[in-house]
Computed example of a mutant assay.
Amino acid sequence: MSHASATAAPVREAALRRRSRSRVNDESPTRAELLELVTAAGTVADHSGLRPWRLIELRGDDRLTVGRALAKACGARGDKADRGARRLLRAPLVIAVVSSPRSSSKVPEWEQESVTSGVAHLLSLLLDEAGWGVFWRTGSHTRDKKVAKAHKLSKNEKLLGWLYVGGSNEADRKPRKLIDAADFIGGL
């Protein structure tokens, strides 16, 4: 094994083990644990160091507030709205992933949004590696005005989705189906 392969092994192994966990229990990382993981996720490649992202930590009733806005955005009423509002209660911690683009003549907005996605992905990998169950939820209503208002987003910010985080049962870890990398790498 080459030196590069040996040093990359722990990261590669973590990536190969990672999988979305749609079922989690009521345990969640403490704020201090979350801050440590976000510090590490914040090292993602970021042209000009703009840090064009932020995360919103939703616990307790804050999840219902956002859930109600999401249910309204979906057009749900009555019992369906109540059920829809409870979707965010599937995990004890929900992290809203927000793209907060900065003014830059060198870094276009799409690239800044890619940085935000990178932070979210790296954070999900770090959470998984720390033993937490995590899955990234998106959907057509992430850009709805009601949902943006519930998150208190500024006019230039965009919600990219939510990381649902909770306790994970290690026995539930199933092997991932891996890609054939040769199908995705080619020459000119």
Rank of each mutant, 00 (worst) to 15 (best):
R77N: 05
E27F: 09
P52C: 08
V115C: 02
T43W: 13
A41H: 09
R51V: 01
A40R: 14
E129Y: 02
G78T: 10
L122W: 01
K72E: 14
T30R: 08
W136P: 01
E36A: 15
G42R: 00
V94K: 04
V119F: 09
E111R: 03
L35T: 13
S105W: 12
W53R: 03
S104T: 07
R137Y: 01
W136Y: 15
R86Q: 14
A40P: 00
L93W: 12
A85I: 06
W132D: 05
R102A: 12
L126W: 08
S124I: 05
E27H: 15
G139P: 09
L127K: 04
K106F: 00
P52I: 01
R51C: 04
P101C: 08
R19K: 13
T30I: 09
R51W: 01
T65N: 11
S22K: 15
H47K: 08
R63L: 09
G131W: 10
L16H: 14
A130T: 04
S100Y: 02
G139N: 10
L123T: 12
K80A: 14
S124G: 12
D26E: 15
L125V: 11
A76D: 12
S104C: 06
R18K: 13
I56D: 06
L127T: 06
N25K: 05
W136C: 05
G60F: 06
A85N: 02
G78V: 10
F135V: 11
L50S: 06
E57S: 09
R90A: 14
R137V: 13
Q112W: 06
R102E: 13
D79I: 10
L93Q: 11
G118W: 01
I56R: 13
D46I: 10
R87N: 14
N25H: 14
R17K: 14
L93A: 09
L122D: 03
R19I: 05
T30S: 15
S103C: 01
E109C: 02
Q112G: 05
D128C: 05
A45H: 11
R54V: 02
H121N: 04
F135A: 03
H47I: 04
R102T: 06
R21E: 12
L70K: 00
V98Q: 08
L126Y: 11
R86P: 00
E36T: 15
K72S: 10
R102V: 11
A81H: 07
L37H: 01
G49T: 06
L58S: 06
R21V: 07
G133C: 06
L37E: 08
G133A: 11
D61A: 13
A41W: 00
